[in-house]
Computed example of a mutant assay.
Amino acid sequence: MSAAPLYTDLSGYYDLMCADIDYHGQSSCIDRLHRIFGNGGRKHLDLACGTGPHIRHFLDLGYDCAGLDINQPMLDRAQARCPEASFSVDDMSQFSVAAPLDLITCFLYSIHYNDGVAKLKECIASAYNALADDGVFCFNAVDKSKIDNRSSMRHRADFEGSEFTFESGWFYGGEGEKQALRLHIEKRDGEQTQVWSDQHAMVAVDFIQLKTLLDPWFEVTIFEHDYQKLLPWDEQSGNAIFVCVKRDLAALAPANPVAA
Results as ranks from 00 to 15, higher is better:
1 M>G: 15
1 M>S: 14
4 A>Q: 09
6 L>N: 02
13 Y>P: 00
15 D>P: 07
20 D>C: 03
22 D>C: 08
22 D>N: 14
22 D>L: 08
25 G>A: 07
27 S>W: 06
28 S>Q: 10
30 I>Q: 13
33 L>A: 04
34 H>I: 00
35 R>K: 15
36 I>K: 15
39 N>M: 09
40 G>Q: 09
45 L>Y: 05
45 L>M: 12
46 D>P: 01
51 T>G: 06
51 T>V: 08
58 F>C: 08
60 D>F: 00
60 D>R: 13
61 L>E: 04
61 L>I: 00
67 G>L: 06
69 D>W: 10
71 N>D: 15
72 Q>L: 15
75 L>V: 01
76 D>I: 02
77 R>F: 06
84 E>S: 08
87 F>R: 07
87 F>P: 03
91 D>S: 14
96 S>Y: 11
97 V>P: 06
104 I>C: 11
110 S>A: 14
116 G>N: 02
117 V>G: 04
120 L>S: 03
120 L>Y: 06
123 C>S: 14
124 I>L: 12
125 A>T: 04
126 S>Y: 01
129 N>K: 06
134 D>M: 09
134 D>C: 12
136 V>H: 05
137 F>D: 04
141 A>E: 01
143 D>I: 12
146 K>M: 11
148 D>Y: 10
151 S>K: 15
151 S>N: 15
151 S>I: 07
152 S>R: 11
154 R>D: 09
158 D>C: 12
163 E>M: 08
165 T>W: 07
167 E>Q: 12
167 E>F: 02
169 G>Y: 01
169 G>M: 05
170 W>P: 01
176 G>F: 09
180 A>V: 07
183 L>E: 10
183 L>R: 05
183 L>P: 02
184 H>V: 00
185 I>S: 00
189 D>W: 01
194 Q>W: 12
194 Q>C: 11
197 S>N: 11
198 D>W: 09
199 Q>E: 13
200 H>L: 14
200 H>Q: 14
201 A>W: 13
202 M>Y: 04
202 M>G: 04
206 D>G: 10
207 F>G: 01
208 I>Q: 15
209 Q>S: 05
209 Q>I: 00
210 L>T: 00
210 L>I: 05
211 K>T: 14
211 K>I: 13
212 T>W: 02
215 D>G: 11
218 F>I: 01
220 V>D: 02
222 I>L: 04
226 D>E: 06
227 Y>Q: 00
229 K>G: 02
230 L>Y: 02
230 L>M: 12
232 P>M: 07
234 D>S: 04
238 G>I: 03
239 N>Y: 07
241 I>Y: 01
249 L>P: 09
250 A>V: 12
252 L>D: 12
252 L>N: 08
253 A>E: 13
255 A>S: 15
256 N>F: 13
257 P>F: 05
259 A>E: 15
260 A>L: 11
